[in-house]
Nucleic acid binder design. Structure first.
Length: 216
DNA sequence: CTAGTGATTCCCT
DNA sequence: GGGAATCACTAGC
């Protein structure tokens, strides 16, 4: 018998913990995006931890800037960045405030509002690909920089909120090197901080970071 | 399935 | 000015 997902919002205290504790605990949780077409909900299946200033792979490793400002703020808020000239990716900030740690949401299963998500993801060949990858997840949920700094733990009507869902037993959680991260050779050995649900079909393929030469 | 490459723009050095 | 926490597409196995 399959347990019904818990629709209770996650409290801010959930995020006010070390990022390596929060990241695997986010698997199986449900993020809800309110849109004019109705809610789109994603069950998280893959995440990556970024541990503030000590982490060479983190956007916060060179200090506070206008872009990463939200990472230095209170936990439970959403950090959205724009990358590769085209894409957005979203994170949830973890505690304590000022630590600048966050969890990148890398992939998930759309469990509500798939019709609305498909409108944003016309290249997806099937529903498993709707949110298979961090930029795909943000696109499917219509998330961009205008949502940077949104409080995912606020009560009342908010563009983004996160529900308890169904946590994943530790035996079903796998971890390994982060995907596509520059700034740390041998990153997999030192920072195996990508977590995913074992065998889940919506988990994105692993790709090592490859520095690209500028077109002449 | 894997591997290689162009797209496109913001941010920080 | 260089590079980026990526994706879509193609070729080949």
């Amino acid at each position: 018998m399959i347990a019904t997902p818990d629709r209770t919002p996650l409290p801010r205290t959930f995020f006010d913990r070390p990022v390596l504790e929060v990241a695997p605990d986010l698997l199986g949780r449900i993020l809800v995006r309110a849109t004019p077409d109705g809610p789109i909900a994603v069950r998280l299946t893959e995440v990556e931890a970024y541990d503030g200033g000590n982490d060479p792979g983190s956007h916060a490793c060179r200090g506070r800037t206008p872009r990463n400002d939200v990472m230095f703020g209170p936990p439970g808020h959403v950090y959205v960045y724009f990358t590769y000239g085209m894409w957005h990716c979203m994170n949830l900030v973890c505690g304590p405030a000022g630590r600048a740690s966050a969890v990148l949401l890398r992939a998930g299963e759309i469990v509500e509002g798939a019709e609305a998500a498909r409108l944003r993801r016309l290249s997806a060949r099937n529903d498993k690909e709707l949110a298979k990858g961090p930029a795909r997840l943000a696109t499917a949920l219509d998330v961009d920089r205008t949502l940077d700094g949104t409080d995912a733990c606020a009560s009342g009507e908010t563009p983004l909120r996160i529900l308890a869902g169904t946590p994943i037993a530790s035996g079903q959680v796998r971890n390994g090197p982060r995907t596509g991260v520059s700034g740390a050779g041998g990153d997999g050995e030192l920072h195996p901080w990508r977590y995913w649900i074992d065998g889940d079909p919506t988990v994105s393929p692993y790709r090592a970071h490859v520095p690209r030469r500028r077109r002449t």
